[in-house]
Amino acid sequence: MKKFLIQAAWPLAVFVVVITAWHLCCRWLAIPAYVLPQPSAVVRVVIERHQTLWNAFCITALEAGGGYLLSILGGVVIALFFAQSPLIRRSFYPYTILLQTVPIVAIAPLILMWFGSGLRSVMLVAFVICLFPIIANTTQGLISVPRNLIDLFVMSNASRSRQLLKLRLPYALPHLFVGLRISAGISVIGAVTGELFASSNAVGEGGLGYSITYANSQLQTDYLFALVLTASLLGFLFFFTITALEWLCLRKWHESAMKTDAD
C-alpha cells in the first residue's frame, strides 16, 4: 500500500503542476473562456450539468460497450475460421486489413446512411473499429501453438475439437487479451466518431460525441472540456476493466501477469 502511494505520488504531482500552469495561463494571458476555460470553470460545469453528462456517458458507454462485445464475439469466430488453414488466411486476411486502414471517419457516415441514424448504427461503427485488433491477435495466438504441443495432442489421439478447447484456445488467450486491451480504448473512439455523424433526435438526448458537436457549435468550451474528459474516463474504465480481467485470468501462469513475482 505504501509502495502504491509512492508510485501514485509522481503522476499526481504532474497533475497538480499542469492544472496550476493551466490556471495561471488563463489568468495572466487573459485568454477568453471560449478559447480556454479555467480549470475551475470546467469543474463548475461538471457539477452543474452532471445529470446531462451522466446521460451522455451512459449512451456512449452502451454504444461503445455493445460494439466492443460484438467485436469480441465476431473477432474470435473469424479468428477461429482463419486458424483453419493458411489458404483461408491468405484469401481473407488482406480484406480484414482494410478494416484497419480505412479511416473510421470515412466509414462512419456510410454505416449511418445504410443502417439509419441510431444507437445500433453507432454500435456498428464501434464494432468495425474494434474488430481488427481482436482478429489479428487472436489468429496469431491460435496459429502460433508450438509444433511439439500439437504433436503431443496428436500422440494422445485428441480430436480437433479437444485440441481447440484444451490447447489452442487457452494458448491464444494472452494474445486475445492484447487485442482486447487495444480495442477497449478505441471502442470509445468509434462510438464518439459514430455519434458525430448521427443526428440528435435519433440518439435521443445524444451521447458524448453528439454533445461535443453541440457544445462546440454553441462555443460552450467549458462543457466541451467536461465532455472530452468524460469520454477519456469512459475509455480508461473499459481499459481498466479488461486489464483487471486479464490479470485474473493469466496471473497464475503467464509471464506478462506475473511481474510482481519477479521483483
Binding site: 511439439n148 504433436d151 503431443l152 500422440m155 484444451k166 490447447l167 487457452p170 501462469w253
Partner: peptide
C-alpha cells in the same frame, strides 16, 4: 513421446 523441451501446458 517425450520431447526435447518439457512441452508442458503453462496454464
Amino acid at each position: 513421446f517425450i520431447f526435447q523441451d518439457a512441452t508442458l501446458l503453462p496454464w
